[in-house]
Design a binder for these strands. Structure first.
Lengths: 225, 225
DNA sequence: AATACAAGTTAGTACGTACTAACATTATTG
DNA sequence: CAATAATGTTAGTACGTACTAACTTGTATT
């Protein structure tokens, strides 16, 4: 079934995870893109990517980027599952704030056994999304990971429910939290200033003016049909 | 306060932990002893130990062994705290068996932040011993780690309460569990066969005959005064 | 198409961690 | 005390992972 069981290093796992994330929105993962997300030099990526290819986890097209093999994708999804289950558990069982879990989960995900993750998930009643609204891959490696529109895609007057947001920047999460913007909340786009200007958003009775950068990091459920 | 904050590697943490454990029962930690517990070659220990010395974590006496510095001891105790809190948490909150937690905790202890450990400990009401009866170092680095007599030290006819047992061998723990020997249980040494022969032990109404090896791994509370 | 810039790769280096083989030191014991 | 056994160390190698500097390839612009 899983032929190459030569335990992966934590680093390799991280690479696969970011390659998955980059690949998911479109093209093959570019060296520089990987390097940026991991905060390492592009040259280091070239080397590591070769090792991943040797292990049959990615396919490299020289000078063109890298793609996960099915095997690589399986590992990536497992890491994402671990990450999201951990985040869910830490928030609901150990009092972590949604803006502070990311780093802890990031470290634990390489050490936690699949069994532990399954136990945590079970303890929470097998949640389908994490505290940031991101879908949790199931133990069998399947996910419902639809590409969602972002707040910035709404037309003026349109409304939508917040589906999820990036978990990587605690400051952004704190900011959104202060505005009352979290998964499940309904938003309405009240106004948009010209030339990519700030948006005015209605959150319940409140009105907030937010920048475009923020507005592209909040994903909206696609149920406005 | 802690001057050398250059994050330690997980390996270094493991070394410090086993050095602490070896040193605790007596002499400076010998190279071979360290190598055995970590399942690596003695030559590898020599090298690593030099690095630890460079970081001010141990003091080496060439050809004589190694001792923790106060700084090294602080790290070791923190690792032991992490390990034991994790074990306690996994057993009481996530349904792990006492014979199966060791490895999971062993991996997590390098990834878990002090904050996480403190939260877990708090969630359990700050327990003072782990599921195997081992004392949990406090967050401030203090422990009550008395040297205890083992079952094998009892005289025939004497009795004692089980204080703790080694957590490293799942099979041993399972065996002890089957005999009903766990922390808190009262035992009485009924008989001892000559020439280091097996012991007959009374556990409640039951009688069990156990080998010396096992009898030196079960620690007895020293309250027979 | 020629040039310039961005993106990617290779070469050479470093460090942590492990290994084996060979050598050195300490301890034991005849 | 000398010989041997046990223990410990060094030297040389390997691999993963990162770095910088220099070179190459691909893309965009004039």
């Amino acid at each position: 079934m899983t032929p190459g069981r030569a335990a992966l290093t934590g680093q390799a796992e991280d690479y696969l995870k970011v390659i998955y994330e980059i690949e998911r929105d479109g093209e093959a993962a570019a060296t520089t893109a990987i390097a940026e997300r991991l905060h390492i030099a592009p040259a280091s990526v070239s080397g590591m990517v070769r090792r991943l290819a040797r292990q049959g986890l990615v396919v490299v097209e020289r000078y063109r980027g890298v793609r996960l093999t099915p095997k690589g994708r399986r590992v990536a999804l497992q890491m994402i599952r671990r990450h999201r289950v951990l985040e869910s558990y830490l928030v609901t069982r150990l009092g972590y704030g949604w803006d502070g879990v990311h780093d802890e989960a990031e470290r634990l995900e390489h050490a936690a056994s699949p069994d532990l993750i399954d136990r945590m998930a079970a303890a929470l009643g097998d949640p389908t999304v994490d505290p940031h609204g991101a879908p949790i891959p199931r133990a069998d490696g399947t996910v419902d990971d639809a590409r969602l529109p972002v707040l910035n895609d709404l037309a003026v007057g349109e409304q939508g429910r917040v589906a999820r947001m990036s978990d990587r920047d605690p400051a952004l999460l704190r900011y959104l939290g202060e505005l009352g913007i979290r998964p499940g909340v309904t938003l309405r786009l009240v106004d948009r200033a010209p030339f990519d200007g700030p948006l005015t958003v209605a959150v319940g009775r409140a009105r907030h003016v937010i920048g475009v950068t923020v507005a592209t990091r909040v994903y909206i459920r696609d149920d406005r049909r």
